[in-house]
Design a protein around this nucleic acid. Sequence first.
DNA 1: AAATTTTCCAACCGCCGCCGC
DNA 2: GGCGGCGGCGGTTGGAAAATT
Length: 388
Amino acid sequence: MTKSNSSSEKNGLKKGPWTAEEDQKLIDYIQKHGHGKWRTLPNNAGLKRCGKSCRLRWANYLRPDIKRGKFSIEEEETIIQLHSVMGNKWSTIAANLPGRTDNEIKNYWNTHIKKRLLKMGIDPVTHTPRLEVLQLTSILNSLYNSPLLNYPSLFGMGSSSSVVNQSQLLNLLSTYLSCQNKNQDVMNHNFNQSQIGISASSPLLQNQSQCSQPMQLNSIQTFPSNQPQVQVQENKQPCATSNPLHMESQIMKTKLENQISPIVANPFSHQNNTIQNLWQYEGGHISDQQQQPQSSSAMQSFSLPKFNSIVNNLLENQILSGNGEGVPNYYNLSSLLSFAVSSTTPSTLNSSSSTTFVNGTTEDERDTYNSNMLMYNISNGLNDSGLL
DNA sequence: AAATTTTCCAACCGCCGCCGC
DNA sequence: GGCGGCGGCGGTTGGAAAATT
């Protein structure tokens, strides 16, 4: 389970996995003489290991106060909380978790927690919602603001002639995002909109071209040349200079400060899903289904699961691949979440399989709990330090 | 059941800061 | 102040175990 034994002998020193006999020698020696002086310890203990290897073996495995077994929810909470404050300072984190080693915590972070956070749409480095989710927010908000691509029509609900199905929406979003990942001038490239049936004069496109600063939307993806192409009209109207990321942070901060209490009070009452969690922050109706927001009749079929599936598809297929560059100028998370709330039907909520948490938490429940606790901690961090 | 892929984690590696000379 | 040794830390590796095909 460890490094190869093939090159285990170097300078007469053994490498690779420790044997029970070696372990016993080390334990016996340290019990008798204490640890320290790792350089001379191997010789004194009769071990053909380097001092470093002995120290690691003792610190990470043989130490009598080592705690083994699965990490508890409380321990996970502590790790996430501390990591959000101090980053990869494993030894410092370990100092706050009696019986756990830095190596063990590091491994647990890399193999479990990090993956869960990513799955939940949370950046494990910054402990904030991933850029992709924010990008989706801005994209849908752009669509929302477009008369040609209003939400009911997007999902075949309205009478608008520009009906766009989910597949087409994904294509559109993919194109939109790829535009932001190129370093080409949007004004000098052709853009084919025939696939989704909108014209180049669409307000959506105008919104893009109007604001090349500060959103850095300087380019647009070209389509295969056999497709008819439409020139995007140039519009050099000046745009606002406010920092969208900062705006988003302020929005999130307000949401968290205002909505965190009911979530923490009942952390297991809902499913694990980032967007759903965000929706809950917005709505604050986690466990009180009597207070469900009323859905608009025109939008009833745009259920939360459908919304989630779009988000998940985009993330899983890496269509949304933000890198911090080309941040769009629309960062009105509030509008998107309001929409999600207003378009969620009671049946959608009732179909949720999650109920009150008692004992024997499932992985999803724990994910949700951790997500909520993380958000709570972020909120505290915001209040205490003024960061973000 | 066998082959292949993925996950997990103990151990290694290299770098850094501290300390004594 | 410069140097070398040492301990500590975080990133990475590689092989066993588990999961999947």
